[in-house]
């Protein structure tokens, strides 16, 4: 199973096609069958007719051919314009669907910590309305205050991630080896991974030349993919990181894990903002969508392959 960058369902997004313009319904057989037929009759007739009549017939057939060609060209132009218009409608529908989905995600992620903040405030009000403030009540008040601070931090993390997500940064390109970028991030997570029983296998192509890319942005992608792979492995397992050429003018990096894999119904949503299967407070669902946004800015593409129960492999292809 392989999923490209998620897209909205074109069938539902495109809406009703525009009605054809007047004159477009003229039957196509007139051009495809009628014209060759008339030409064939004219050629056969020219063999038996006197020359003046054959010339008149040839001129008539040529005029017919010119008219047919002009009509067909006009029809192709109209179809092309309609296709462009439908493409624009489709893009617009996809944008609206993405905004709707993102709004619902933001609402859910922010409403939950806000609900906890509201409850803690209510509980503090209740405690403070008691005739006496006991040491137990005071400890509970402190605990509630600490919880409010934790939930505010949770909201802050969401809004800051969103700001990073939406910030338009032009990539600053510099020459660097992919192996070096990968290895920097692998070393960051490897210690913790080992403690959890997860080993990291390197499969770098030593022949791969350095590429022109935005190193900090690509590091962020690699780190997100590594953390995602690490969190997808419930117990012991392996993460394989690799680099290889991908055709003449592109290179590929891949992060594969032996974790739980991705359910088929989740494959198309995996890069959507706020899509997560992690417990509340653990994942905001922004990591992979940020990876997708960064890779897009770097002129690359990100794909995922997975079978449930047999891990997942994320591949990023980039220009050299």
């Amino acid at each position: 199973m392989k999923a490209e960058t998620p897209r909205a369902d074109p069938a539902s997004a495109a809406g009703e096609p525009a009605s054809p313009p007047a004159g477009k319904n003229r039957p196509l057989w007139l051009h495809l069958v009628g014209l060759p037929g008339v030409t064939a009759v004219a050629v056969l007739s020219a063999m038996v007719l006197p020359i003046p009549l054959a010339v008149i017939l040839a001129l008539f057939t040529a005029s017919l051919a010119a008219w047919s060609a002009a009509a067909l060209a006009s029809r192709i132009r109209t179809s092309e314009q309609e296709r462009c218009s439908l493409d624009a409608q489709l893009v617009q529908s996809q944008k609206l669907a993405a905004i709707g989905e993102m709004s619902a995600g933001i609402a859910h992620e922010i409403n939950n910590p806000m609900a906890i903040i509201a409850q803690e405030s209510d509980w503090m009000t209740h405690l403070m309305s008691q005739p006496q403030v006991t040491p137990e009540n005071l400890a509970e008040l402190r605990d509630s205050l600490a919880e409010i601070v934790r939930q505010v931090d949770r909201c802050k993390a969401i809004t800051h991630n969103l700001l990073n997500f939406s910030r338009k940064m032009d990539p600053i390109l510099q020459q660097e080896h992919l192996e070096r970028i990968m290895e920097d991030m692998v070393l960051l997570v490897e210690k913790e991974a080992k403690l959890q029983g997860v080993s990291i296998v390197r499969d770098y192509d030593p022949e791969l030349a350095a590429i022109q890319t935005d190193v900090p942005l690509l590091r962020q992608v690699v780190l997100n993919l590594l953390l995602n792979a690490f969190q997808a492995i419930p117990g012991q397992g392996t993460i394989t990181v690799s680099t290889r050429p991908a055709g003449a003018d592109r290179v590929a990096i891949a992060v594969a894990d032996t974790g739980a894999g991705i359910l088929p119904e989740n494959m198309s949503k995996i890069f959507n903002p706020f899509f997560t299967t992690k417990p509340p407070g653990v994942g905001t669902g922004l990591g992979l969508s940020m990876c997708h946004g960064i890779v897009d800015r770097l002129g690359g593409a990100i794909t995922v392959e997975s079978e449930p129960g047999r891990g997942a492999k994320f591949t990023v292809t980039l220009p050299r």
């Binding site: 609900a115 906890i116 409850q119 209510d122 509980w123 209740h126 509630s144 417990p279 509340p280």
Partner: peptide, 16 residues
């Protein structure tokens, strides 16, 4: 509710 803190505080508030 899967939010640990949400359900424990709500139980206390409803009790009150």
């Amino acid at each position: 509710d899967d939010e640990d803190r949400f359900r424990t505080t709500l139980v206390k508030l409803l009790g009150a």
